[in-house]
Design a protein around this nucleic acid. Structure first.
Lengths: 213, 213
DNA sequence: ACGCTAGGTTAACCCCGCTAGTATACTTAT
DNA sequence: ATAAGTATACTAGCGGGGTTAACCTAGCGT
């Protein structure tokens, strides 16, 4: 009864010591992210595949994640922080508040299409497969979103943009999300040069917001 | 051996006559759409459920659809035509080319959030679950898209908008798609008043495109 | 030495997409 | 009328997925 290794299983993981149960959680997240990135396919990240990669049985995953959706979002969560870093860096590239805003938008789009699977999980899933917190709290309180609102607020205060900062920020988010998600869903579509299109969208959008004399 | 009706099956459908095989296709599409609309959940539209609803066995579905994805897109296909009708109607509501363009955008967004499941299937699926034709041809050749490009072209010709009509059209599409898909994916998010936000996005976007003096 | 419990495992359920092989009823040719 | 052929559908089953209930066991605290 010593395990038959029926279908090419990976080496059995040595059981964690008392009090170190959380280690499995980390290993699951790592394995899941590796699977997601290597295969570039969300569907490859099955409970069974992750468990197998870690060297544990499927039900063990449920010791740390309520269901598959929570696992997937947990895997992608660090991308929130990364998205903020990337957009903040980009925004810092110019002193002109509006140009800076455009850079922020371009960086957002680039980041999205560079990590399509994570982006799809975080922002394109049906509500029924999105944990409550990622429907509202984690989104609204995300650093990236907060920084965008701050940026827009500055623009409004300095008279560069007219309108409610929150409304304007949500509009900007919708715009960059639109191009990002469309490029992710329809990569085979005969898009014009990406640089040109991304720049066009960001530029004209901000131009529309600018409080021209 | 006269069928045990093991698990509450619906009445068996009478076999189609010779040459009328296509009738099953229609019935499958109808049943599929009904399922999609009544449940409001794409996942309810399984091959098995559709077959059961029609009164036929699952493999029969494959007589008319290569796989589940083709079935889903076929179910949503008529929405393409409807989307065109709705946006054309909206655009006809004003003589002002730019105001008309804004109306087109608002109508697109409204139509999308009123038929979220169909919209998600048509525009938000991963490429791996999108039939080739819906990645490129059906999109590019869709009446709605053609009409948008024509509309934008007129704006460019009359000097209202500056730029390449195709590029501008794709940008507009990206914008309205962005708000639509975000509203569909994150309905619980504390959005501002929808009318206000939709109007804001459409208005400012077109303002940014307008060739202001 | 012994029990308790954190940290797992076994076995199974139910649903799914899909396929190979088979049956049945119409239509048409003889 | 009858036989052949084919469009139309079915039977049975594979492999895989998420999830759960019930059980085990290593090792720490007493």
């Amino acid at each position: 009864m010593t395990r038959a290794n029926t279908t090419s299983s990976s080496p059995r993981r040595t059981r964690a010591r008392r009090g170190e149960g959380e280690k499995l959680r980390e290993q699951i997240l790592e394995a899941g992210e590796r699977l997601l990135i290597e295969t570039g396919d969300e569907e490859a990240v099955t409970i069974r595949a992750v468990a197998e990669a870690v060297g544990v049985t499927p039900p063990s995953v449920y010791l740390h994640f309520a269901d598959k959706d929570e696992l997937l979002f947990a895997i992608c969560e660090r991308h929130f922080a990364q998205l903020d870093r990337v957009t903040e860096e980009a925004a810092a590239g110019s002193d002109d508040l509006l140009e800076s805003l455009a850079r922020r938008g371009r960086a957002y789009i680039r980041f999205g299409i560079e990590h399509p699977e994570q982006y799809r999980i975080l922002f394109m899933r049906p509500p029924s497969h999105t944990p409550e917190s990622f429907q509202v709290d984690r989104l609204r309180d995300a650093a990236a979103f907060g920084h965008l609102v701050e940026h827009v607020s500055k623009c409004v205060q300095t008279g560069l943009i007219d309108g409610d900062p929150l409304l304007v920020s949500l509009g900007l988010w919708a715009v960059v999300h639109g191009l990002t998600s469309l490029l992710i869903s329809k990569p085979e579509f005969p898009w014009p040069d990406l640089d040109v299109m991304i720049d066009h969208v960001c530029r004209t959008t901000i131009r529309g917001l600018a409080d021209s004399p």
